[in-house]
Amino acid sequence: MSLQDQFIQAQADSKNLPERPDNMTLLKIYALFKQASTGDASGDRPGFTDMVGRAKYDAWSALAGTDKEAAMQQYVDLITDLQG
């Protein structure tokens, strides 16, 4: 199975985890997904009134420079770990 196929499967698996991950793990899942699918963070950082959007942007931005394949692999590994 190719890394791309594993990534797609992990996306599906992420919707059926045995328990809801904590907020920091959810941010990591989001950031790895965005980095793997879109690349480095782009656009303006959300303002202070959008705390969730700001946290998501910051988590994604922290992965700047991580290549898409590495982000895909980390995403797959994280979802696999969370499945227990």
Rank of each mutant, 00 (worst) to 15 (best):
G39T: 06
G39N: 10
G39V: 03
D40P: 13
D40C: 11
D40W: 08
D40T: 14
A41L: 15
A41M: 09
A41P: 01
A41D: 05
A41H: 07
S42T: 15
S42I: 11
G43H: 09
D44E: 13
D44Y: 11
P46Y: 04
G47V: 06
G47N: 13
G47F: 04
T49P: 03
D50Y: 05
D50P: 08
D50W: 04
M51G: 09
M51N: 13
M51D: 07
M51H: 06
V52S: 13
G53I: 06
G53Y: 12
G53C: 05
R54K: 14
R54V: 08
A55D: 02
A55M: 14
A55E: 06
A55R: 11
Y57T: 04
Y57P: 14
Y57C: 14
Y57D: 06
D58Q: 15
D58W: 15
D58L: 02
D58N: 15
A59G: 15
A59N: 04
A59S: 14
W60S: 09
W60I: 00
W60D: 11
S61I: 05
S61R: 13
A62K: 06
A62R: 08
L63N: 00
L63R: 01
L63A: 12
L63V: 04
A64E: 15
G65V: 00
T66Q: 00
D67F: 00
D67Y: 08
K68L: 02
E69T: 03
E69M: 08
A70M: 08
A70W: 02
A70D: 05
A70V: 01
A71Y: 00
A71W: 00
A71T: 02
M72E: 04
M72T: 15
Q73H: 12
Q74N: 02
Q74L: 10
Q74V: 00
Y75T: 11
Y75M: 01
Y75W: 04
Y75V: 10
Y75E: 05
Y75R: 05
V76W: 02
V76I: 12
V76R: 01
D77E: 09
D77L: 03
L78G: 07
L78K: 01
L78A: 01
I79W: 02
I79P: 07
I79G: 06
I79D: 02
T80F: 09
T80D: 12
T80G: 03
D81V: 05
D81T: 07
L82E: 07
